[in-house]
Design a protein around this nucleic acid. Structure first.
Lengths: 229, 229
DNA sequence: ATATTTATGTTAAAAGAATAACAAGCGTGG
DNA sequence: CCACGCTTGTTATTCTTTTAACATAAATAT
């Protein structure tokens, strides 16, 4: 029984679809499309119209019967839901290959995610800059984060250093960790962890490539148990 | 009614858990642990023991009553399921920041994923090498892939070039695409696409960081509809 | 102004996934 | 060598997510 004023938890499946809504509404907006129906969105996104309406109704009533959704308004609403109406300060921890690549990439800034510092232990890197972003010694990390109200820490460090860094971070005002290390991070629940486990992703791809052969193998196995007449 | 010899489709949720099983079994193996029960795995992995048994039984009967699972055997079985018992040839398409970072990273090779070439249009990059991996002109891509029986193409190109590259790739013997571009790739069903949509991941993180504030806003909204007495 | 079409929000049904329960079989200790 | 405890594979149940259905309201056409 749902109490008035009670918030029902939004499922992870819904949350994972929100970025898609946001991005495609952005495309429509750029194409000066004024209105869109759940059915039209359905065709572009590949979700059912019903699902789209259900998803959106987790957050409010944004549409109008007989009209559909106002693209601009819905775009704004979803940007608020995703927290993209305010900008975010990020720091990259670990100036290795991946850390540097993420620092060089300008695509996050477009959405208000500003990388304001990089931290590393390597004295050859400390003092240098990447795209005007300074590389500081990791000792200064905690002070810097608190002083500059940093929201997000991007972890691109070797796995054996992760535990120590996470412990240090957990004492700061950081709100979220974007974790590129293969380590499963356990931390207090006020800090959100979003994992990018590349090797898992690659394994999943490998599974699907292998799937055909696998099924043949399983079939043979089952035929032994149920011999054909 | 399930026919003998018929394969029931394995759900995506199960597949996404397989890499976790694989990695933690690898850890146990390195620690010379001989046997493990679903309950013990449950504690490490955070899935229920029941779920682990269900998951594994999608692929065969690997355990033994009263004993559990033989770590080494189960590890091998899962590596076969994931297709990690054979090595894979990869090429990186796009030698930008991310492409170069992935090329420099040696962690994929450990699992038999060998990057054997990089392709780019930039004449300043073509001819150079990254970790002994040569950078070739993108014109040679199709020929090279077919000639060298490349399995996986890693896409790290700007989004506006994606469609053209995908079209070219689709005519080759490539089996899977590891897609780091934000583009939704439509291709014939023989080629598997695994997406790493970084911006989606970042948005999801932002959502969770924003969640607290969001709920307050929704509460206020609902209070208007259901005014408290 | 009115009827018809369109498309929402919401409720109901179906499908799918996670958890729990349990019978059957193996290992271990006496 | 036997009995007890452990742990699986599997079936049953519960919970979640997706899809379908529909009553209602706005927009459009006549």
């Amino acid at each position: 029984m749902e109490q008035p004023g009670e918030i029902k938890k939004v499922s992870m499946a819904v949350i994972k679809r929100l970025p898609k809504y946001y991005q495609h509404l952005g495309n429509l907006l750029r194409d000066n499309v004024e209105r869109v129906s759940s059915q039209e969105l359905s065709k572009i996104l590949g979700f059912t119209a019903s699902q789209i309406r259900q998803d959106l109704n987790n957050f409010g009533e944004f549409g109008q019967q007989g009209y559909g959704y106002n693209v601009s308004q819905l775009y704004t609403e979803i940007s608020k839901i995703l927290g993209l109406n305010t900008s975010h300060k990020m720091v990259i921890i670990g100036a290795g290959n991946l850390g540097q690549a993420l620092a060089k990439y300008t695509g996050f800034g477009i959405y208000g995610f500003d990388i304001i510092a990089i931290f590393d232990t390597n004295p050859n890197l400390v003092g240098r800059e990447i795209r005007d972003i300074p590389i500081y010694p990791v000792e200064d990390m905690e002070y810097f984060i608190n002083e500059n109200d940093v929201d997000i820490a991007v972890l691109t460090i070797p796995k054996d250093k992760t535990k120590k860094i996470v412990k240090a971070i957990s004492k700061t005002c950081i709100r979220g960790i974007w974790n590129f290390t293969p380590v499963e991070i356990k931390i207090n629940e006020n800090i959100i962890v979003e994992n990018v486990h590349l090797i898992d992703s690659l394994f999943t791809l490998s599974y699907h490539i292998n799937e055909g052969m696998l099924q043949e193998r399983l079939l043979k196995q089952k035929r032994k148990i149920f011999p054909s007449p």
